[in-house]
């Protein structure tokens, strides 16, 4: 299933303003990865890209009832896919 998910995967930093996406995976170095996960960006979470600063950096995302900003380089550690992409039913089952 890992493979079927990855077809339409992109990085959070590339997502257009206003679009909603679903988290597939969080990568990146230890401290940053842990921080991002702890803030509630985990596989299955639905994120809406809320704002982009000039030069598209930083970006802000809306999820779990609050808004979080990330540098573009930090958003690159979040792998996402379009919401409701049929390829990955088991990912969907874990979101709420």
């Amino acid at each position: 299933m890992g493979n079927s998910c990855s077809i339409a995967n992109s990085l959070l930093s590339e997502v257009e303003k206003g679009k909603q996406v679903q988290v597939v995976k969080v990568t990146g170095q230890d401290g940053l990865k842990r921080r991002v996960l702890d803030m509630g960006i985990v596989p299955g979470t639905l994120l809406t890209v809320q704002r982009k600063a000039p030069l598209n950096d930083p970006v802000s995302v809306w999820f779990r009832g609050y808004e979080l900003s990330l540098r573009k380089s930090e958003a690159e550690s979040v792998v996402v896919k379009p919401v409701g992409s049929s390829a990955c039913s088991s990912c969907k089952a874990r979101c709420f």
Partner: peptide, 18 residues
């Protein structure tokens, strides 16, 4: 990684958020 597509740390935190 093979079963879910992510590592143990992610799985723990994902479950806690779940």
């Amino acid at each position: 990684e093979k079963e879910l597509g992510y590592d143990l740390q992610t799985a723990i935190i994902e479950r806690r958020w779940g």
